[in-house]
Design a binder for these strands. Sequence first.
DNA 1: GCTAGGCAGGAACCCCTCCTCCCCT
Length: 192
Amino acid sequence: MTLTIFDLETTGLSPYTNEIIQIAAVKVKAGCWDQVEAFETFVRPQQRVPGFITHLTGITHSDLQTAPSPTEALMTFSRFAGEGSTLIAHNGLRFDMPFIRESCLRHGLPVRPTAVIDSTALSRKLWGGRGGHGLDAVMARLGLSAKGERRHDARGDVKMLLESVHLMWRQLSPDFASSPVPLASGVIPDLV
DNA sequence: GCTAGGCAGGAACCCCTCCTCCCCT
């Protein structure tokens, strides 16, 4: 089972009014967690990056002026994920996948279906209603630290998410043969 | 000083609808 674990930074919380400004992803085969392919890109938005987003992510408007367009960045991400891999993001069903779907719609990109795992579901399955399921809470329960990676930089967040998913998956399905939680569905750009 | 939208999942209830909270940037 090939997994594409990814994270987005955006100009805000709304997939309808905000834009993607960074995509980072790592691709692994479940069970071969040390053989990792990595991908990351900034994305040039049409609106200015709000000050509080720069404060949160460290990404400034000028960082993005020479970045790929949303269409280019999304297509490159889709090619990186390839055919048949399962996408994983933290709160991905409520945040990352709607952002990709709406961004494709806005830029007229045809889409294809993809399997999705929301890693908050792994946390809920392991720990139920206790203690919250945000990435910081998950990492704290797993004894993981940021180890110098910057939180809210997609490149750092995706590494932390990879570690977290690996450890949660190992506890739930030690043989890594199948997903410990039901697969959901989403869309990414079609490969044309 | 500036910070918003919507889903999933639960509750109550009888299978839908409503509601609240989480979680992401």
